[in-house]
């Protein structure tokens, strides 16, 4: 079933078209990557899908319902974890619930059990400043998950600020956690390896104005991605992606 789709979205700023006629879809529990060079309008597209920007034309459908320009339905995670320094981790993570009018106590109670699942056990009562970058991203993903009432989340380069080793660890963790929870995500990245490793499908975007150039399906099952990046299959996917990016 289709969790989310955009239909012919176009958005321009002061006469300059940033993204043009973008139609993508996201199936239930699917991980889709949006791969493209910087300046191809990926973040603008996300701002439109999340509802904080109104498109010039086109629609965003969440399970068939028109949510164009209505923020709060589709969850959004940015490169910076944006945990609020003045709140304890558990209050940061449960913030989406509180914004929906749930009391602090109730929000904490609902959030608590998920900490273990997300590998965040024992961090509830810490302030974000006391956590490592990798742990902070995990907390941010948990917050994103709790904010996704419709089970759909947008991740804008969520791991790009991490060092290579932490990134490798968090990739494994990410694939693992996505098997456990119901969340369909679109994932912006400019890292080709990351896109292939973490997705069912990759949309390739080219810039000025941003358009979807191609769609590449990664056949390997998500629960069989251990050392996937060392295989011939991975390389052939990568060749395909590079070719498209180079415009051949």
């Amino acid at each position: 079933m289709e969790a989310l789709s955009t239909q012919h979205i176009t958005k321009s700023f002061s006469g300059r078209v940033i993204i043009e006629d973008i139609s993508i879809r996201l199936m239930e529990n699917e991980l889709v990557s949006l791969l493209g060079v910087s300046g191809s309008g990926k973040t603008t597209l996300f701002n439109v899908i999340s509802g904080i920007l109104q498109p010039d034309s086109g629609q965003v459908l969440l399970r068939g319902e028109d949510v164009t320009g209505h923020p709060g339905k589709i969850s959004y995670m940015l490169q910076k974890d944006l945990l609020l320094e003045h709140m304890k981790v558990i209050d940061n993570v449960s913030l989406p619930l509180r914004l929906n009018g749930i009391s602090k106590k109730e929000a904490r109670m609902r959030t608590g059990p998920l900490f273990e699942e997300f590998g965040l056990k024992g961090t509830q009562e810490l302030y974000p400043a006391a956590m490592s970058g990798g742990m902070r991203q995990r907390a941010a993903l948990l917050r994103t998950y709790l904010g996704s009432q419709g089970g759909v989340a947008l991740l804008d380069e969520p791991f790009s600020a991490l060092d290579t080793i932490t990134k490798g660890q968090i990739h494994t963790w990410y694939l693992d956690i996505m098997e456990k929870i119901d969340l369909s995500t679109i994932f912006i990245t400019h890292d080709i390896d990351e896109a292939i490793l973490l997705s069912n499908r990759i949309y390739i975007m080219t810039g000025a104005p941003g358009q979807i150039k191609d769609e590449i399906v990664i056949d390997r099952p998500r629960n069989d991605r251990k050392e996937f990046n060392l295989t011939e299959e991975f390389l052939s996917c990568k060749r395909k992606v590079l070719k498209t990016l180079e415009g051949k």
Partner: peptide, 23 residues
């Protein structure tokens, strides 16, 4: 970006003030 995130989470003006701006 914090304000963008709050808006994406559906926060109203008062909530943005209370959780982000004032602190």
């Amino acid at each position: 970006d914090e304000i963008s995130l709050m808006r994406a989470m559906g926060a109203d003006r008062y909530q943005i003030f209370r959780f982000v701006k004032f602190p």
